[in-house]
Design a protein around this nucleic acid. Structure first.
Lengths: 191, 191
DNA sequence: TTTATATTAGTAGCAGGTACTAAAATTTAG
DNA sequence: CTAAATTTTAGTACCTGCTACTAATATAAA
């Protein structure tokens, strides 16, 4: 990189570390063609912690994220559950969920919220999503609280469950759907 | 923890570190009530790297994962695209995508594949999912290759796009859907 | 009791820093 | 142009969480 003044370097340094937090001071000093001490002063000035701390925070952030996405079978937080009858859950949307161009939340997050609530409301050891009829009525943005309400409308033969799930942001409905979930015995589905 | 024989300790140690990779040798030595040296010999025996290496690998693994989920606007890999006409993409399913009880892939992954393909096929700067009509025809398991095919069936007023998306595993259809996407101008959607 | 096996102790050295002091180099002001 | 202020570089001591190694004990098996 060509030599630059302090201000410029600070800006670029911040961007560079943001983009790749795994860079050592030595590597950065080579990139910017300044001494290692300068990089350290710069980091101090920008309140950027050392490599190991950066790595640790990437690790812990993502560790948590992976847990709530793959360990938790339910997307969002369950706040009320009447088995086989109704259920309510919510999900706070954030910047990671949106299309960058439009800032609109990707549909599958809302779908996942609705689907997992539909699954949660069923009192069956296993259920598989059969049919879903969906309508997105309004776009959802980041930093909004989605409230999902599921209502079991019909149970046929004790196997097929008809469930309506509606998702609201405050009083505005943003999504509605009908799920038909079919209870299946675990052994019967093996490949 | 009560004292235990080597074999038992090795097993527990492996589990403990797997569950929480952020433990120092010293903390582990206290947990198991053995010397720090013993923990180090144990790790060596089990081929478990040191704390910093573990943290680093958690960070990099998840760093990649987050990138492919949030940076990439399209879920799956695009292999063919005829703008405003048709498109094909695929997605390899893995163990992280399934319900643990049933080993069946969660519906929203398939939905996300279909939705993002539907969005990709449209030649509009911005598009928002309006209505989706969905049917899951067969359960999908991990380690299968989902192939999604999108077909634009109708364009109304140059704004509303009707798109069919079908998802197959080999010759079996596992999902089909109809999307109606509405092109919107970016300025018009701001809150 | 001798011999293995397992555990503990202790030392030197490494990476990637922090925290600090001090000297140059460069810029800015008078 | 010169003095003062700012920026950059140099160097040292110390920190954490290790590795790699040597050596002494403790415990269990033959």
């Amino acid at each position: 990189m060509p030599k630059m003044v302090k201000k410029e370097r600070l800006k670029k340094l911040q961007e560079e570390i943001q983009e790749n937090p795994f860079l050592r001071d030595e590597e950065l000093s080579e990139m910017f063609d300044v001494s290692i001490q300068t990089i350290r002063l710069d980091r101090m000035h920008l309140n950027i912690p050392e490599l190991r701390e950066r790595v640790k925070s990437v690790a812990t952030e993502n560790h948590d994220k992976v847990k709530t996405l793959s360990r938790g079978e339910i997307v969002g937080e369950l706040i009320d559950l009447q088995l086989n009858t109704s259920a309510i859950s919510f999900l706070e949307t954030d910047k990671d969920m949106v299309f960058q161009k439009t800032q609109i939340v990707k549909g599958h997050y809302i779908f996942a919220l609705a689907e997992s609530l539909a699954m949660a409301v069923i009192d069956a050891p296993v259920a598989i999503t059969g049919v879903a009829n969906i309508k997105y009525t309004k776009p959802v943005f980041a930093e909004q609280r989605l409230v999902a309400k599921a209502q079991v409308t019909h149970i046929r033969d004790g196997k097929e469950y008809y469930i309506h799930v509606k998702v609201n942001v405050k009083e505005d409905q943003v999504f509605r759907s009908k799920f038909i979930l079919t209870a299946i015995d675990v052994e019967g589905v093996k490949r």
